[in-house]
Design a binder for these strands. Structure first.
Lengths: 158, 158
DNA sequence: ATTGAAATGTTTTTAAA
DNA sequence: TTTAAAAACATTTCAAT
C-alpha cells in the first residue's frame, strides 16, 4: 500500500507538476508526449493513489511581512501519551509553527516557525511554547540564509 | 520592495490557493465574491508582484519510496567565502537534500534530507557530506513522526 | 484604479470509436 | 489510444463606477 509503481511517464508528470503545479493538461500532455486524454487519466490516477496529495501556491514569506524564520528544538518534561497528545494539539493550533517533526536524538521535536520579527518570536516563545506546553528545554536557531529552498522531492530515475 | 499591501480579498485568495493551488479561476472568483475577470487580475497581480512565487504539486514521499527523512546539522571546518560557496554548491546539487538553511547558533547549517532507507542515508553521509564538503561536524536526527506538515504560511488577518 | 458583463478563444471532459 | 463533440473555463475588451 505504501510504494506505487511509477513508469517513466509518471515520473515526468510528477517532475513537471512539482515545479509548475498549474500547467494545463494540454501543455502537460505535450511535454510528456501523450495525448491530452491519456495524460489527464494518468494525472487523475496519481491523485487518486495519493502520489499527488494536493496542489499549493508557494507564497513568499517576506512579502507577507514574515521576515524571520526559526528552527526550534524542543524537549518535553514528560513523554507519556497525554503529554505528547497535548503538545501535538498545541502545535497544531499555533499558526506560527509551519511544520513540526518528532525526532530521534536528545531533542524530541523540531519546530519550523515563521514570524514577523524578533519581538513576535519572543511572544511566541514566552506566551505559547514555554507557557502552556509541558516543555523542559528549548533551543532556537534563526535562519540567516536559505541555501536551498524546497523545490520538490527527488524522483527515482525512470 | 519587500512587503506589499494586501487587502482582505487578496488574503482570501492566498488562503484558498495555498491549500488548493489548482482551483479554477471561476471557483476562486465565487469564493471571494468577485467576478471572474476581477479575480483573475488580482491573482495575476499577486503572481507578478512575487507574492505567489509559483505552484507545486505536493508529492507523498512514502509513495515514491522515500521512507526516511532526516534533519542533519552541519558545522564547517572553515567559514571563509570559498568554503561556504563550495558547500552551498554541493548542497545545491545533492538531490537528497530537499532544503538547506544557514543558521545562527553553534551549527552552521540545517539540511533536510529525504532518502529511501538507512542504507541510502549512510551512503549520503559517507560518500557525500563527510567526503567532499569541508565538514567539521555532523549531527543527524531522523523523523519519527510528522506532527504538523507544512500547509502554507500564516496569513495576517484581513 | 478596480470592477462586472459580454464576447471570444482555449481547455477540459465525456463518450464513442 | 485517439477522435470529436459538449461543457466548462480563461482571457480580453469595454463600459461603468
Amino acid at each position: 500500500m505504501a510504494t506505487i509503481d511509477l513508469d517513466r511517464t509518471d515520473l515526468l508528470l510528477l517532475a513537471a507538476l512539482q515545479h509548475e503545479g498549474r500547467l494545463t493538461n494540454a501543455e502537460l500532455a505535450e511535454r510528456v508526449h501523450l495525448s491530452p486524454s491519456a495524460c489527464l487519466r494518468r494525472v487523475q490516477r496519481l491523485e487518486r493513489d495519493g502520489v499527488i496529495a494536493g496542489y499549493a501556491a508557494q507564497v513568499d514569506p517576506e512579502r507577507l511581512g514574515l521576515g524571520l524564520q526559526a528552527f526550534v528544538r524542543v524537549q518535553l518534561v514528560r513523554h507519556d501519551a497525554a503529554s505528547v497528545a497535548a503538545f501535538s494539539g498545541f502545535v497544531e493550533q499555533w499558526e506560527e509553527v509551519v511544520a513540526c517533526h518528532a525526532l530521534t536524538g536528545d531533542m524530541d521535536y523540531l519546530l519550523q516557525v515563521a514570524v514577523r520579527d524578533l519581538e513576535h518570536f519572543s511572544r511566541f516563545l514566552l506566551d505559547r511554547l514555554l507557557n502552556q506546553a509541558g516543555v523542559a528545554d528549548v533551543n532556537s536557531s534563526f535562519v540567516l540564509r536559505t541555501v536551498k529552498a524546497f523545490r520538490g522531492l527527488p524522483l527515482p530515475r525512470g
